[in-house]
Design a protein around this nucleic acid. Structure first.
Lengths: 237, 237
DNA sequence: CCTCACTAAGTACAGCGTACGTAGTAGTCA
DNA sequence: TGACTACTACGTACGCTGTACTTAGTGAGG
């Protein structure tokens, strides 16, 4: 018979090697690495079962021995790059440590621009995600607050970083699937926006854009946002 | 000849009705409404050019007269539901107004659970998005701060709401494509997590989960997060 | 009235996820 | 040892996707 019955299954609970038949030709990490490689090189949309199998050097359907559904391949990918997080001995200054965490996450997402799109709380309990979360909590040991609050702090920092980096990368990643360049796209949208603002229907937006002419420094924006978030959780204001 | 050359094109800059031939059978709003209807009923993945065309009652390829790429269909959808935002006369209390905005956005996303997935700064300049942004800025008139800061505040509130609601909806929306129920999925993941935590490798996480047993009130979490964000922008602390 | 830009629709193609069937392999047990 | 059986590997096939291209018909402008 084909695949087992439709039982809920967490990929991490499934053993890598079953007892019986021939030993698998690849390890789960190989599959993840192949998928990550394709996503880094050609974008997330290029990650298809066929392409990943080809990258590994096996038949397309053989992949399903390692990954029951494509969704689980994504889960493998997120966990794999989560393992790139460098964990350190907490410094005792939780604000500094959290900022360092945030910058590392941003760097990670710049290295793997598809990561924000796959960020989901559903994947939050993969092995490397657990390591990462435990590390964040360790960094927050000096903060006097219940664990619930600490979890909310970590979630907020992660959420803010993810949102901001997603915005940073959105137009760039979008361009991959468009038949024209990002500069052309930006120019067209800017021209359209200028036209709308000139209509006078949006006086405050027009004022805002007139006031802050020139390109926005997105990294500085993120930095300010993070500072505000940490302030909001800091008992010493 | 087929479609025009590969020029960058903003869907909103393209006139609804060209001067020459027969008048179009549908308006852009009809197309958007059809797509939104399908997404609400059957999920975002059910929004295909074929399905939308069938819902409208026209041939698949006729859709391309209204929407040059599927991506633009998404843009139409986001703008259409953005129009559901109720705008009011600012009260003079910018914190109260921003909270009201946030709750309205959350309600909107619960009505259209696919919306968080489509939230992108690229769509941020559609007609209804502009109306919405201008309204937010109007609510912030009492706040003494440069427009740049106000924009960052709006972005942060929107980002937090989007992230939190996306988390709220993630497992539910995910279940749509899985062959088992959400309860089964949750049970499997909880069992796996319990096993990992019992390993002793993640003492702080184990303590956190032991401390906050029981289901989390996600709405209360969002409420706290929003309060913190507003605090962070409030000059009167 | 003629012209031609436009709308509408059909056909076709490359690619996708994956159900299913088959062949071969290697631990387990009689 | 041989038989059994769970497992790996993989080819074929199906229904679905976005969309390039083609053809036919419509109706306003010159």
């Amino acid at each position: 018979m084909a695949g087992r019955a439709a039982e809920p299954e967490v990929i991490w609970a499934r053993p890598e090697r079953a007892g019986r038949g021939p030993r698998p030709a690849y390890r789960r990490a190989d599959v993840a690495a192949a998928a990550v490689g394709i996503a880094d090189r050609d974008g997330l949309d290029a990650v298809s079962m066929r392409h990943v199998a080809a990258e590994l050097g096996c038949g397309t359907m053989s992949l399903y021995n390692y990954v029951p559904r494509k969704e689980d391949l994504y889960e493998l990918m997120v966990d794999a790059v989560s393992g790139e997080h460098e964990l350190w001995e907490p410094s005792g200054d939780w604000r500094a440590d959290m900022l360092r965490v945030a910058h590392q996450t941003r760097a990670l997402m710049h290295r793997h621009p598809w990561l924000p799109r796959l960020m989901s709380p559903v994947y939050g309990f993969s092995p490397n995600a657990l390591r990462y979360l435990e590390h964040c909590l360790a960094c927050l040991d000096p903060l006097e607050a219940p664990y619930g609050t600490k979890m909310e702090l970590v979630a907020m920092v992660n959420g803010v970083v993810t949102t901001y980096v997603a915005n940073e990368l959105a137009t760039a990643e979008r361009t991959r699937s468009l038949p024209w360049s990002q500069e052309q796209e930006d120019a067209a949208r800017t021209a359209y926006l200028a036209g709308r603002l000139a209509s006078g229907a949006y006086p405050r937006m027009a004022a805002a854009f007139a006031q802050d002419a020139g390109p926005i420094d997105l990294e500085a924006v993120l930095e300010r946002a993070l500072t505000r978030v940490l302030d909001a959780f800091d008992p010493g204001r």
